[in-house]
Design a binder for these strands. Structure first.
Lengths: 237, 237
DNA sequence: CTCTCTTTTTCACGAAAAATTAACTCTTCC
DNA sequence: GGAAGAGTTAATTTTTCGTGAAAAAGAGAG
């Protein structure tokens, strides 16, 4: 698995130093130049770790830290604070605000990376992958699914789906984000031994959309990836 | 990807019926009128699937099937057997000889095509593309790619790319630094069997740049190497 | 430095391909 | 025998592509 790291800093040099090194280590790096931008980003993305510079324009770094911690869905992303001041006060404040680690500038890149690794290890242990075999429910935007009850609810209204439509939707919901080709869907949803046209997938998607999408022309859940297939859109916005 | 199908049959009518229909579906058809001819062909070609009529002059169909299976390089090409006799014996013999599916004449063309599609799907699953080692995401500078989701993000903003633009960018991202000529790109990205002007590559690069480059005049990602081609710039700064 | 020839970039538009949807058939299950 | 679901086909709509030509940029010679 590849970890996604959000770096919040306003100095171009530092950004490049950090991001190129993290990328070399195999991490995916997301950047934000200001606290506002970082908070904005967090509405749509969930990084595995945040590197936060305390000396930011606009919202003060500590405030950003506090606000991140206030969001329930991001309450346990590890935050690593960078600070120019080596003052003990900042350090303590930062840790109190919910930061997980603290480094002062100038810092050694090597040390930064090893602290990031350590933080990710710790977080992985603290939140082991939910291997509850099957999640019993799923919810996203206005869509709610109860896999046990075979019930689909959209905008708090129950929707009646046919067997295949249900399987199709369940499959997408269990594999959000990833794109599947028509053939893959035939394999996974219909089962390998069927002899049907790939076009048939289109038809069922269309029928499904009519039932669960507000505007079937602009699907919010199952989106088409032209010339590739379809995917369940898991973006937050 | 275009699949190549070898049809082994001696009846002109059947051959025409099958091959015209397969071609309409986008398959490439190779023909052999006898078992000997089929085996000869297999020395130089490797089809993705074989449709084999059991009632052949010369070598008996079942024997052809057995011999094909004996060749290690063709051991796992799906074979679909056609037979005039609906006898259970033939069916079982055929499947024992290593055939993957079985149909009796007269057959429905639609069913034949469906079965071919199913067999190809199954075989694709059994032999997944060997390049599985590749990363599921990529990040460089301000560009982020999620290959599974077919998602491209630039400066934290999602970008909508057309199918070819996506393929083009993915290709470059998977082969950073190296220069590719327009012809090589046509081969690799478009696929070998297309007839398009090399200029067309320029056009797509241009369109792509407009979407992902901050300053298309000074590209930061896909740079042109005059009179040679293009490359993905992977230098640090 | 300027002129000229070559190569690349960009644009607009018709052609082609892919996706969506409606309509119809066939089967199954009450 | 009829309602419901699934699959097919074909018509329609949407999206994407490819081309030629003009504009821009680059390379090289004198």
């Amino acid at each position: 698995m590849q970890f996604k790291i959000l770096v919040v800093d306003d100095e171009q040099d530092i950004i490049e130093l950090i991001s190129s090194n993290l990328q070399r280590e195999g991490y995916t790096v997301i950047l934000a130049m200001t606290g506002e931008e970082a908070l904005e980003l967090l509405k749509t993305t969930t990084p595995d770790l945040i590197v936060l510079d305390l000396m930011l324009p606009g919202i003060q770094g500590l405030e950003v830290c506090r606000q991140i911690r206030a969001l329930p869905e991001h309450a346990d992303i590890p935050i690593l604070i960078l600070s120019a001041k080596g003052s003990e006060v900042d350090r303590i404040l930062g840790l109190e605000m919910g930061a997980d680690d603290y480094m002062t500038k100038p810092f050694s890149v090597r040390e930064l990376i090893s602290r990031i690794r350590a933080a990710l290890r710790k977080s992985a242990k603290a939140h082991p992958p939910k291997k509850t075999a099957h999640e019993r429910t799923f919810s996203h935007k206005q869509l709610f699914i109860d896999f046990d009850k075979y019930e689909v609810t959209i905008k708090n209204k129950k929707v009646e789906l046919s067997p295949i439509q249900t399987k199709l939707l369940f499959f997408f919901a269990k594999n959000p984000g990833r794109v599947y080709s028509r053939d893959q869907l035939l394999d996974q949803v219909w089962g390998g031994e069927v002899f049907v046209t790939p076009r048939n997938v289109d038809v069922h998607i269309s029928r499904l959309r009519r039932l669960i999408e507000e505007d079937p022309q602009n699907p919010a859940y199952i989106v088409t990836v032209t010339s590739v297939g379809y995917k369940f859109d898991d973006s937050k916005a």
